[in-house]
């Protein structure tokens, strides 16, 4: 299958009064048609900034380099007008907190209509019909009545469904989902995850799914990329990464999640905490917390290598990690 999105050496810096901070560091990955890529990592690892960098939805203090090739064109080289057409058009984004992303003073129907007007050539009547169809598609019952309602009249799960309906209005080829279920209850999360899977099948979209929940990744994604301190440290199919993690951080993350059969015994855990952007350690950024670290890790930044087919890792000791085995098998 061919790649719809190709990201090469993407780097995003924030210039702050105390100096430049690199939030996304030399990130490369590609995404295929209909593929769901999970982007995982702990708080502050750069997942949201990566997602926003793809569509240049960044504050003015940010500067970017690298390439984001979308359907043959580099988004980073597009004019502001061209970017606006892609963003919210072929590429849509949904956010973690639907409350902040929805406009509180506009009825839901109008918010869907705005997107339809901006990105389609439908007539007024056609847009109204399409809005109803979209509400049905995302599982909001009584669409006709609910289109006239305001966000505060929707529950958390319904708001997230409405957000998805708005995002789908433009018929996107790529959906960027930033922790769309983190704020939701587990039974509602389950409904939304399955909705996203159904939509992917029906609309043949690709999805980048940001989450810090490895269970969500295991249950929904095709491939995953693990971020640490602004870099992607491991990429592979879900089955490979869970069964044969090759980066010590990935292995530690997998071991930190409680699982059946180990009740009341110590979890693997990872000592220490992730570094701040202003104090990213030299060499491999993970070395101060790493059980596998050797001298080379303290001085040189590991390069990303394809160790197995479709399985990339940036770790000096990936073979030792691989040999140590997966904590979830």
């Amino acid at each position: 299958m061919r790649a719809v999105l190709d990201v090469r050496n993407l780097t995003t810096r924030f210039s702050t009064p105390t100096g430049a901070l690199v939030a996304v560091n030399d990130v490369s990955f590609s995404l295929r048609e209909r593929e769901i890529l999970g982007l995982v990592g702990e708080s502050g690892s750069g997942k949201s900034v990566t997602l926003r960098s793809l569509i240049r939805l960044l504050p003015s203090i940010a500067s970017q380099s690298g390439e984001v090739i979308w359907q043959g064109h580099d988004i980073l080289k597009m004019s502001p007008k061209e970017v606006r057409a892609v963003r919210g058009g072929q590429i849509s984004m949904i956010f973690q907190e639907p409350t902040t992303a929805l406009n509180p003073v506009l009825p839901i129907g109008l918010q869907i209509d705005e997107n339809l007007r901006a990105h389609t050539t439908l007539s007024h009547r056609e847009r109204l019909n399409r809005a109803r169809e979209l509400m049905d598609l995302v599982g909001i019952p009584e669409a006709a009545r609910r289109l006239a309602e305001y966000p505060h009249q929707f529950s958390g799960g319904m708001k997230q469904r409405a957000m998805i309906a708005i995002a789908l209005a433009s018929n996107p080829r790529l959906l960027l989902a930033d922790e769309p279920t983190t704020a939701l209850d587990v039974t509602i999360q389950d409904q939304i995850l399955k909705l996203i899977l159904d939509l992917r099948d029906e609309l043949a979209m690709s999805v980048i799914f940001v989450t810090h929940d490895l269970g969500v990744v295991a249950a929904t994604c095709d491939r995953m990329a693990v971020m640490y301190a602004g870099r992607i440290v491991e990429t592979g199919t879900i089955a490979d990464v869970f069964a044969r993690p090759m980066h010590a951080y990935t292995r530690g993350l997998l071991g930190s999640v409680p699982r059946v059969g180990t009740e009341r015994s110590p979890l693997m855990s990872i000592e220490g905490t992730p570094p701040g952007l202003s104090s990213i350690p030299r060499g491999c950024a993970f070395h101060p917390r790493c059980d596998f670290a050797t001298n080379v890790c303290r001085v040189s930044q590991p390069v990303t290598e394809t160790v197995e087919p479709e399985h990339d890792v940036a770790c000096h000791n990936s073979l030792a990690v691989l040999e140590a085995g997966s904590p979830v098998q």
């Binding site: 319904m158 587990v186 995850l193 399955k194 249950a219």
Partner: peptide, 25 residues
């Protein structure tokens, strides 16, 4: 049972497309 079924399994081979609990609280 619904809560258990809804909690995503850490094992990618145990996927399901069935919705664990319909409706909302």
């Amino acid at each position: 049972r619904a809560l258990l079924a809804a909690a995503p399994e850490l094992d990618p081979s145990k996927r399901s497309r069935k919705i664990a609990a319909k409706g909302e609280l």
